[in-house]
């Protein structure tokens, strides 16, 4: 258990905060309320699982707190910076260094080797090629793929690709890791590997992890769980509070 997570949440630093976050998509005359006003605070070093059926607004929520989209109403603060106030360059800077993204379908660049994939965000961040290569190899070692640095995504299994993706997400030492169903496309065993890597990152490096998932194993290692339904937070609970219910389900 992350010792930081045990401490009283009130005393800890808030890394992502949303205030009255709403998102309305307009298609012709028809309005779709994807988010209907979400207030949430996520703390530094926290491992939080987000659950919700498809169409619940979970993806929209993810895009908002990941600085990929801006809310129609309300505000999102990442590290106390109002995302809506940032210029395109500053947004790119934020995405490059503060947030690491992990996608359900890995999204590796197909024509790059594992190492090149990992070092691309470093290039955007202005790291020199030599330094990038060194750090890239360290990151690949961390996810256990050091020997395969020259392989292209097509030559790797799903689990290996996702591990490269994790190494890539960590390239510029982000403080937030945003994972969109990272184990959904993987079998049970490789899913376990990914989860243990994420857990290790959370515990040893204190990376804040926000993870959309349907995976019950994830729930066993996170600090808090969050349910989204119909564009609003249905429930946020500490894991120890829900554990009883989970036990009763299983």
């Amino acid at each position: 258990m992350n010792p930081a997570a045990v401490a009283d949440a009130e005393e800890r630093r808030v890394i992502i905060r949303s205030v009255g976050m709403k998102k309305i998509y307009r298609r012709g005359a028809e309005l779709t309320h994807a988010l209907r006003g979400v207030d949430v605070e996520i703390y530094t070093g926290e491992f939080i699982s987000v659950m919700g059926p498809s169409g619940s607004g979970k993806s929209t929520f993810f895009n908002m707190i990941g600085a990929l989209d801006s809310p129609s109403e309300g505000r999102v603060f990442i590290d106390e910076v109002d995302v809506a106030q940032l210029t395109a360059e500053e947004l790119a800077f934020l995405r490059c260094r503060k947030i690491g993204y992990i996608f359900q379908s890995y999204n590796l660049i197909q024509y790059m080797t594992a190492l090149e994939n990992v070092t691309t965000p470093m290039a955007f961040g202005g790291v020199t090629p030599d330094e990038s290569r060194k750090r890239g190899m360290e990151l690949l070692e961390l996810v256990g793929l050091k020997e395969r640095w020259f392989h292209r995504p097509i030559e790797m299994s799903g689990g290996q690709q996702q591990r490269v993706a994790i190494a890539r997400a960590l390239a510029n030492r982000p403080s937030i890791l945003l994972c969109d169903e990272p184990t959904a496309n993987l079998d049970h065993k490789t899913g376990d590997e990914i989860l243990s890597i994420l857990e290790k990152l959370n515990r040893e490096r204190g990376v804040t992890i926000i993870c959309a998932t349907h995976d019950h194993r994830m729930m066993n290692m996170c600090d808090r769980l969050m349910w989204i339904r119909d564009g609003a937070i249905e429930r946020i609970a500490r894991r120890d509070e829900v554990e009883v219910q989970l036990a009763s389900i299983e």
């Binding site: 395109a88 790119a92 490059c96 996608f103 660049i109 955007f124 890539r168």
Partner: peptide, 8 residues
Amino acid sequence: TLKCLGAL
């Protein structure tokens, strides 16, 4: 994805 990684 490149834009997520910080491409301008």
